[in-house]
Simulated scan of single mutants.
Amino acid sequence: MFIAHLLSRGIRFKSWYEALYFLPYITPMVPVAMTWKWILDSKHGLLNYFLSWFGIAPQAWLFDTSLAVVSVIMLTVWKTIGYNMIIFLVGMTGISKEYYEAAAIDGAAGAKAFRYITIPLLKPITVFVSIVTLIHGYNVFSQVYILASDVQGSPGYLVRVLVYDMIENGFRYYKMGYASAEAVVLFLIVLVLTLVQLWLAKDNTASAKGARR
C-alpha cells in the first residue's frame, strides 16, 4: 500500500517503477527460486558478500532452520509485492480527488489524508489483497522445494509446509487417504480464516461506503 501510495503521487518514470515491481510476479517461480538459491548461498552468495561490507559474518541462509524460513519469506514477499501494489494502485486511482481537496481545506493533508481518507476507502481492496495473500501463503510449495533443503539435498527438510507434506504423502509414500485428509484440513483452515477476515472487515467496509456518501 505504501509503495502504491508513492507511485500514485505522480513521480517520474512511474511506468518503469510499476514494471520493475510487477516483473517478479510474472516470472516463473522455479527460475526465480534457483536465482535466489545462488544469492543466498552460504559460501559464494551475493547476499553474504553484501553483508561482508558491514562486517557481518556469512550466514547459512539455506542450512539453518530459522534462516531457511526467513529465506522463504523474503523470496515470497519479493515475488508477490508487485501484484499487491498494482491492486492497491488501481484502488487509489478510483478515489475521487474531491475528498482530498475537501480535506485540504479542513487542514488534513499528507499523512492525515492518507490515514483518514485513503486507508478507509481502500478497505474493500485491503480485504481482497489480504484474502488472496492468505490463500497464496498457504499454497507455498516451489520455493520450499527448491530453497529449503538440507545438506544431503532432501527437499523440504528444513521448512515443512502443509502443501509440501500433502504432496509428499500422496506421491512419494502413496498415502492418498492421508494426503486427501490434509487437503481437506487445508481447505477448512483457509475457509475459516477467510470468513474471519470478512467478518472483521464488514464494519470497516460499511464505514468506507458511508464515507463515500
Rank of each mutant, 00 (worst) to 15 (best):
W16I: 13
T35G: 06
P28V: 12
M29E: 12
W36H: 01
K43Y: 11
Y25F: 15
W36Q: 00
W36R: 02
P31S: 11
K43W: 09
K43R: 14
K14V: 15
P24T: 07
Y25H: 12
G45Q: 07
Y17L: 10
V30T: 14
E18C: 00
K37N: 01
L47G: 02
L46G: 14
P31R: 09
M34I: 15
V32Q: 00
W16S: 14
Y25E: 03
L47C: 08
M34N: 10
W36C: 04
P28A: 08
W38H: 04
F22W: 08
L23A: 15
M29V: 14
I39T: 10
V30G: 01
P24A: 09
Y17C: 03
M29F: 06
Y21C: 01
L20S: 14
Y17M: 10
P31L: 13
I39F: 14
A19F: 01
S42P: 15
A19Y: 00
E18Y: 01
A33S: 15
W38N: 12
V32K: 01
P28E: 11
I26D: 07
A19R: 05
L20R: 03
L23G: 00
V32S: 05
W16T: 13
S15G: 12
H44R: 13
W38M: 13
H44D: 12
L20V: 11
L23C: 06
S15D: 14
A33T: 05
H44W: 12
V32L: 10
G45I: 05
T35M: 13
E18S: 07
M34Q: 09
L40F: 12
K43H: 13
T35Y: 00
V30P: 02
S15P: 08
N48W: 02
H44N: 15
W38L: 13
G45Y: 02
K37I: 01
N48G: 07
L47V: 12
L20A: 15
V30H: 09
D41W: 03
E18H: 03
G45W: 05
L23E: 00
F22K: 07
L46W: 14
I26P: 03
I26K: 07
L46F: 15
A33L: 10
T35C: 05
W38K: 05
T27P: 04
K37F: 02
T35S: 12
A33H: 09
L46P: 10
Y25M: 03
K37V: 00
L23K: 04
K37A: 11
F22C: 05
P28Q: 06
L20D: 06
E18Q: 15
D41K: 09
G45H: 06
L40C: 07
I39R: 02
L46R: 14
W38Q: 10
